[in-house]
Design a protein around this nucleic acid. Structure first.
Length: 376
RNA sequence: GGGAAGAUACCGAAGCGGUCAAACGGGGCAGACUGUAAAUCUGUUGGCUCAGCCUUCGUAGGUUCGAAUCCUGCUCUUCCCA
């Protein structure tokens, strides 16, 4: 996997680059739609490619492992073959589920004992089997198995948690060395920086993972309950240390403003469930601000969903019609909103890329962040 | 024509002497959602000069310290018999 840093913004740390993977190029900064169970909820591959212009999507180790299970994924020939997406894929390691499944899991040095949220059965996730499962899935980019430390963790907990993540990283690499890709293409492991909101822990973590010659580096454990300013501060601290010539991936973030602020601080890759989940729940992100399409004010607004939108759904349907669909719980409503939001997120990052290369990023971003928070 | 049951807030439906402006659903209105246990969850839903007051449980009266709840007339609805 090859990353080429093409341009750095003249007035900020924002970068434009190209990441070349076994399944094609990714023009950064980039937003990556989340496809937890092997599908970006409600969105066809055709729409991802032609309308949203997604360059890479995510899958999730925990969810795919539980269902359909690795025998099926391997028999299919990996996730690319299984879901028909022939562009790059990134899989999360299950680390986030360590955080989000809170009360049905137990954390030990060995790994995490989970109870399946589907049938209550017990499973152990460890760095070793997370790597094995991610081999079976066959993503281009695979993530280290970490503990996503909660944003409100105290210093001692955050330190212990970080040290565990560091020991787990060694085991991830060891396991990866013992195994090989199953489908004829290389897989790149991205290590993850933890350390909660504590600058010295973040620095320590960034230095530690930088010592591995990874193809890219991730910043995790942010947007998980901490103050927004703390998040931005941690990004700055970490990006000052991570190698310049490798992509940086901010995991699970975030709002359109979060993304622009992070790009401004040198982040290259993003993923978040917000465009799809919030879309399904009636929230539309546009370059003029945020629309809650369920609100009565849109009841008879027959103007396009988003006149500035880049996807066909933006012009094909009216706000009144989309409101009707969402309120009536018609599945088409969720699909339209998801396509719109994903297209907007991808547009936002690709427009940022254009502005960076044009050396106009900083001013453009300052204007955008004012606009993006407006409630329409 | 005779008999039975019933009429409760936007709708459906509990309540069957005081703790009832009235449970619970639905609908309406609004909010939340950040490496997806989420097509989910939360709040609110008579009025006002709002820690209180006013009007509301078909309608008109009555009993009672006190009624959505008990009694009587009336109106309407559903079912059964002729």
């Amino acid at each position: 996997m090859q990353y080429t840093l093409e341009h750095t913004s003249n007035k900020s740390a924002a970068r434009a680059g190209t990441l070349t993977t076994p399944h094609g190029e990714i023009k950064t900064p980039i937003f990556m739609p989340v496809g937890t169970a092997g599908s970006v909820k409600g969105v066809h591959v055709k729409e991802l490619k032609e309308d949203i212009k997604a360059q890479i999507i995510l899958g999730n180790t925990y969810h795919l492992y539980l269902r359909p299970g690795m025998p099926v994924i391997e028999a299919a020939g990996g996730l690319h073959k299984f879901n028909g997406w022939d562009k790059p894929i990134l899989t999360d390691s299950g680390g986030f589920q360590v955080f989000s499944l809170g009360d049905i899991r137990k954390l030990t040095e060995e790994g995490v004992r989970f109870q399946s949220h589907i049938d209550g059965s017990y499973h152990l996730f460890s760095p070793e089997n997370s790597m094995n499962i991610q081999r079976s899935i066959g993503a281009d980019i695979i993530m280290a198995f970490d503990e996503c430390t909660p944003g409100d963790a105290d210093y001692d907990y955050a330190k212990k948690s970080l040290e565990l993540t560091q020991r787990w990283l060694d085991r991830c690499y060891t396991q990866l060395d013992k195994t090989h890709p199953l489908y004829g293409h290389e897989q790149s492991l991205f290590p993850i920086v933890q350390g909660c909101v504590y600058p010295d822990l973040r620095k320590m973590a960034a230095r530690q993972i930088s010592s591995f010659n990874a193809d890219g580096y991730a910043i995790g454990g942010l947007a998980v309950g901490e103050e927004e300013n703390d998040m931005y501060a941690m990004i700055e601290v970490v990006n000052a240390i991570l190698p310049q010539n490798k992509p940086r991936y901010l995991m699970g973030v975030g709002t359109p403003v979060n993304i622009l602020e992070a790009i401004d601080r040198g982040v290259d890759m993003f993923d978040c469930v917000m465009p799809t989940r919030n879309g399904r729940n009636g929230m539309l992100f546009t370059r003029k601000g945020i629309i809650n399409i369920r609100n009565k004010k849109w009841e008879s607004d027959f103007t396009p969903v988003d006149p500035d939108g880049t996807s066909y759904v933006d012009h094909q349907y009216s706000r009144a019609y989309l409101r009707h669909l969402i309120i009536s719980k018609e599945m088409l409503g969720a699909q339209i909103a998801s396509i719109h939001n994903l297209a907007f997120y991808v547009w936002l990052t690709q427009e940022a890329r254009r502005q960076i290369k044009n050396d106009t990023f900083k001013a453009w971003k300052e204007e955008m962040v004012q606009q993006l928070i407006v409630r329409l």
